[in-house]
C-alpha cells in the first residue's frame, strides 16, 4: 500500500464517520397500546414521560383518561379522576411529580396531585381582556408553567396565580422546554428560542424545508430539531441552524408510519436521548423508535 492509497482509505473512513445520522438509524420498536392487547384508546391526544419511573403517560382525551405504559409498551394502569378529567388535550409533569393538564371541555388548566388523589381546576374565559384557549401546557424548571394560547397564537408564561407575566412567539403551533430554554414552533416553519429568564435575545431559526402543516417540535441534546408534519405525515430532522437532515416514517397506519402525528418526545432515559416517541391521533397510539 503506498502513501496515496493510505491517504484515500483514511479519508474514506473519515467521511463515513462524519456522515450525519439518517432515518435508517431510527428503528420502530413498539406501539402503545399494542394492537394485539385488549387496551384501546378512544383518542390519543397528548403524552408525557416520567423519567424517574420510566413511564409514558398517554392522555385519551375523549375518554377522559390517562394511561400509563412502561418502556416496553406494556400497559400498567389508567386513571380518570372519577370521570373528572374532562377532555385532556395536553399534559406535562412538574418536578414534584404533579401533572398539569389542559381540559378543553372546561377550557381550564387542571392540576393533578397523585399522592392526595385530587385534582384542581383553573378555568379561563374565551372573552374579555384575559381571554385564553390553552392548547398545550409545558413545565419549565426555572420559569414554571408555560401555556400555548390558541386564541392569540402566543406562548404565555404564567405566574403562581396563573396570571400572564410574559408573551412569546407569534402564531405558535407547539412549545417545548429543552436545554434550560423554551423552543417555539411557529406555523411559518420557523423555530424561536426564548430564554424565559429574560436574559438574552430571542433567536429565530428558519427551517429550510417546504413543510405542509408543522404540528410538533422536539429538540435533542445535540441541538437537532425534530418536527412532526401532519400534512406530510413524517418527522423531519433539522440541524441546529435549520438545515434539513433526514426524515422518519411515512404516511400510513402500520408500526412506524403516521396518519396524524401530534406530539413528539425524546425520552430522557439511561441510554441518553436515543428513544423517540411519536403520538399519532388518527392511529390512536404512540410509536416508539430507538437508535
Amino acid at each position: 500500500m503506498n502513501f496515496t492509497q493510505i491517504t484515500i482509505a483514511v479519508l474514506f473512513y473519515c467521511c463515513i464517520l462524519s456522515l450525519p445520522a439518517s432515518a435508517a438509524d431510527w428503528i420502530s420498536q413498539w406501539r402503545a397500546p399494542d394492537p394485539q392487547s385488549d387496551v384501546r384508546l378512544q383518542s390519543a391526544l397528548a403524552m408525557v414521560f416520567d423519567a424517574q419511573r420510566e413511564r409514558i403517560y398517554i392522555a385519551d382525551g375523549l375518554a377522559g383518561k390517562l394511561h400509563a405504559f412502561d418502556l416496553n409498551g406494556q400497559h400498567l394502569d389508567d386513571f380518570d379522576a372519577g370521570g373528572d378529567l374532562g377532555i385532556p388535550v395536553s399534559i406535562t409533569l412538574q418536578r414534584s411529580g404533579r401533572f398539569w393538564l389542559v381540559d378543553r371541555k372546561a377550557n381550564a388548566l387542571v392540576r393533578v396531585v397523585p399522592e392526595e388523589q385530587r385534582i384542581e381546576r383553573f378555568p379561563f374565559s374565551l372573552t374579555g381582556a384575559s381571554a385564553m384557549l390553552p392548547e398545550k401546557v409545558v413545565w419549565h424548571p426555572d420559569a414554571g408553567l408555560m401555556v400555548l394560547d390558541r386564541l392569540s397564537g402566543n406562548v404565555l408564561a404564567l405566574d403562581d396565580n396563573l396570571n400572564v407575566r410574559g408573551r412569546y412567539g407569534n402564531n405558535c403551533v407547539d412549545v417545548v422546554s429543552a436545554a434550560g430554554k423554551i423552543w417555539l414552533l411557529q406555523a411559518d416553519s420557523s423555530v424561536v428560542q426564548v430564554d424565559p429568564s429574560g436574559r438574552g435575545q430571542e433567536e429565530r431559526i428558519v427551517l429550510r424545508y417546504e413543510l405542509k402543516r408543522p404540528a410538533a417540535l422536539e429538540r435533542n441534546l445535540q441541538g437537532q430539531l425534530f418536527v412532526a408534519d401532519r400534512g406530510l405525515c413524517q418527522v423531519l430532522v433539522f440541524s441546529p441552524t435549520g438545515s434539513y437532515l433526514y426524515s422518519i416514517g411515512a404516511r400510513g397506519n402500520r408500526l412506524g408510519r403516521f396518519s396524524a402525528p401530534r406530539q413528539l418526545l425524546l425520552l430522557d432515559t439511561d441510554q441518553g436521548q436515543g428513544v423517540l416517541a411519536v403520538l399519532d391521533e388518527i392511529n390512536r397510539c404512540v410509536d416508539l423508535f430507538r437508535r
Partner: peptide, 24 residues
C-alpha cells in the same frame, strides 16, 4: 379574537373542542 367572540357568544362552546379552527 376576543373582539369577535365577545359579541358572538353562541359560538363559544364550538371552540371548546379537541380541534378548533382558531389558528392563533
Amino acid at each position: 379574537d376576543g373582539r369577535c367572540l365577545s359579541c358572538h357568544t353562541p359560538v363559544l362552546p364550538q371552540f371548546k373542542r379537541v380541534h378548533t379552527h382558531l389558528q392563533g
